[in-house]
Design a protein around this nucleic acid. Structure first.
Lengths: 217, 217
DNA sequence: GATGATTTGTACGTATGTATA
DNA sequence: ATATACATACGTACAAATCAT
């Protein structure tokens, strides 16, 4: 899409969302209007609006007259979120298998190979964005933009709690193998297998996060 | 949940969202800050914040310096949204079949009976909220609050385009029959049947909307 | 439990960008 | 093409609620 002229509110919301997703601003942290205004060199107004927007997409919880904080979920809630994410991703994989055009499948293959290279290099910092891109590609090639939008929204809400997921080299390699099964199913157009493989992959990710995430304590 | 002390922004956002969902404010309508401020007897500030929040959940589209309007979707986009909604509802039905406790199932039965009564009375105005409640009940008894939240969000985004869905008495009766199949599957704990029946039901709804919705033109 | 400090909530004014003549 | 009108975007001031003492 064309790059719309960004307003200060947009810039602040985007930046904060990104930092929340990537754990720079962790769960439980207070979103202080005054200090954020100072940081972004604007008045409180656009900061307030950005925070308000983050609230409705679940990136902040509002407490009237007490400020907003980045939400902190219970383990049960996180399990719920992972299950939903797994199902949404599985659905995306199903759509990809059913509706992807050849160019889309090629794109997916490329994204997969980038993941594999990063995994073989053992470079977790490289693998993280490559993995994100891989999943995004699955959303895209299924040719249902709305599904992609909803799934990405869910994924991003879970993201702050997934930092530790690829901490081990072993997990990295397994993850790539799981991706491969998904890719093959999508290329073959086997919708059920694509969905099942993707669901299994996502649930593996969840169990690998285990009790380690600081947000779970 | 406890009724939190509401701020003006919250009240305005809730009211506007409700009106958009129920078609009082139709697709394409401009959300004018000044007139809304006058209507709600507040300054433009809380109105702005409410509109900003509506934007990020897809109830308004922002055009910097040009105001926000209630979005108007193409038929293709609507088809996408209906498909996603059908899948989410099917997933909710699956969860309901798998995880509902007896009290939950009883609650669903009651909600279904209220729908049936309204349908037999031929009262579309009564059926509409009863139907909404029926689906909400399915979300709830599946015991995954996050899934319920996401599904409701999707459902509400599609809602403005569904006004005409029960315009015929025949559709009303068919709808109840479809509900019945869903209810039975959930009560029997047959997850696959529950999901399949719910998906079919939702796709029927989509086709019954057909080309009639004013938003589609 | 009352009071002051702090932070958010709302009002309003001005600047800036967009659309139209 | 330039100017003008208009609505929004942002800044600032004040009111109200919460928290700390």
């Amino acid at each position: 899409m064309a790059t719309q002229k960004q307003t200060a509110t947009d810039r602040i919301r985007t930046t904060l969302a990104d930092e929340i997703v990537h754990g720079v601003i962790g769960p439980g942290v207070l979103l202080d209007e005054a200090s954020l205004a100072q940081r972004f060199q604007v008045s409180r107004t656009p900061v307030r609006e950005a925070i308000r927007q983050l609230e409705v997409i679940g990136f902040a919880t509002a407490r009237p007259h007490r400020g907003a904080v980045v939400p902190l979920f219970t383990p049960d809630k996180l399990t719920e979120m992972f299950l939903v994410m797994a199902e949404m991703e599985a659905l995306c994989a199903r759509y990809a298998a059913l509706y992807a055009v050849p160019e889309g499948k090629a794109k997916l293959k490329t994204a997969h190979e980038i993941c594999r290279d990063a995994a073989e290099a053992g470079d977790i910092e490289l693998y993280y964005p490559a993995n994100f891109r891989f999943h995004e590609t699955v959303y895209e090639i299924g040719r249902n933009e709305f599904l992609a939008e909803v799934t990405l929204g869910v994924r991003q809400r879970v993201a702050p709690f997934r930092k530790a997921q690829f901490r081990s080299f072993g997990r990295l390699k397994l993850s790539v193998e799981e991706h491969e099964r998904v890719v093959n199913a999508i290329i073959e157009g086997d919708a059920d297998a694509a969905a099942r493989n993707m669901r299994d992959h996502m649930l593996e990710v969840r169990s690998s996060v285990g009790e380690v995430s600081p947000a779970l304590r």
